[in-house]
Design a protein around this nucleic acid. Structure first.
Lengths: 223, 223
DNA sequence: ACGCGTCTCCACAGGATCTTCACAATTCGC
DNA sequence: GCGAATTGTGAAGATCCTGTGGAGACGCGT
């Protein structure tokens, strides 16, 4: 995460708060430093003030985005400035007008990361999670380099897990979303899930899928 | 709840009023004491005067927020001071200009807590309360960084508490909302709650859940 | 119709978990 | 302080859940 803000005090506040949220934060105080920092640390998100010494936030945004796609959250001093930026189509992913509370900032940051995460993994035909590689288009799977041959349902099941890494999926949800079943209260049939889980574990390794007793299963994205 | 205010009289009246509202209130009269108190009691909200001996409210706010995210309500002597603070982007979540009525203060406090409650539970998948971290999607829990393995009911119980921090939950309500039981008049079975509370305390620390004699249990979020 | 792969279901075993119970320890009202 | 009510604690049986192997059902192309 990179914070670009010329006011040292504000920059420090933002950085401190984001660090408290668990992010790794770098700080830059002017345009050239921002571009350089982006190139060297390759942050997964940039918080960018518009008004900067050197060259301004717009220019920074343009240069950074030109090099590689990265979500940008822009800070503007006034609302009409925001309008202008949107009009210019600078390519920022979200805007925040000063003054703002830290709470709003962190909320936006999280929302932005969620959005990016989602779009990159869903739109992407290829999902990589640790040593697990899935090519959704070609319907191929490999773990630690070795390919595995999955049956249709096994594959759909795995993709379903991979789209929500680490999240626990109850059997009912799996049945309704992978199988298109409508299990309302019917406790029968849910064991079919187990069989396919077993098959996946046999083909891809027992440690790939975690079972959560009384609830369902979750994919362990090895990291 | 932590009140930081150098004027002893004002501090006392604020504290008294907030206690009357049912909050647990600690008081600090200067900057260093404030930071220390925040670290030791981990309040869920800080009412912070700007002008303080030691170092001022801005510095306190920065240090507190740097350590962990907590809502801050700032008290300023003059309106233009508020403007300045806002401009600095210190990271307070709300401001109040002296003089103010107790009614306004309590209203703001409640509003702020509501806002926090909303954002923390709606944002949803992750609940952080002091050193307790719960990932609802992954069904994982950690206290002070160390993970704990909970059984299904234990986890549901904890989440139920965590969504209502510090609120006392009678056994009957827990049974009806976590267990889906219909305890109407049946006084039997309520002891099952105790067993699971015991398990939670063993796994996450005895100080996490407070027992309210004759009523039920409540989660202590670091205060 | 037949073979083949795939899917669903079943029954059993082994764990894991839940509830209950009796008793010790604590708290509260007086 | 004292008695009554409430809570903490440990253990044990009952209950529930999951892993597993295999048997049949189903779809599909030949």
């Amino acid at each position: 995460m990179l914070v670009v803000e010329d006011d040292v005090t504000i920059a420090a506040s933002i950085a401190a708060r984001l660090r408290a949220e668990g992010f790794t934060v770098d700080v830059a105080h002017d345009g050239p430093a921002a571009v350089e920092a982006d190139a060297s640390v390759e942050p997964d998100l940039v918080v960018l003030d518009v008004m900067l010494p050197g060259f301004d936030g717009l220019e920074v945004c343009r240069r950074i985005q030109g090099r590689r796609p990265v979500p940008v959250l822009m800070l503007t001093a006034r609302a009409d400035e925001t309008d202008m930026l949107v009009g210019l189509g600078v390519g920022a992913d979200d805007y925040l007008t000063k003054p703002f509370s830290m709470r709003v900032l962190t909320a936006r940051v999280h929302a932005l990361l969620r959005r990016v995460e989602r779009s990159s993994s869903v739109a992407g035909t290829r999902i990589v999670l640790g040593d697990l590689e899935i090519d959704v288009d070609q319907r191929r799977v490999a773990r630690a380099g070795v390919a595995a041959q999955l049956t249709p349902i096994e594959f759909d099941l795995l993709v379903h897990f991979a789209r929500r890494p680490r999240a626990v999926q109850p059997r009912e949800r799996l049945l309704s979303e992978v199988w298109d079943w409508d299990v309302h209260g019917t406790s029968a049939g849910t064991r079919a899930v187990d069989s396919h889980i077993k098959a996946l574990r046999r083909k891809l390794g027992a440690d790939l899928i975690r079972t959560v007793h009384g609830v369902g299963y979750a994919l362990e994205a090895g990291s």
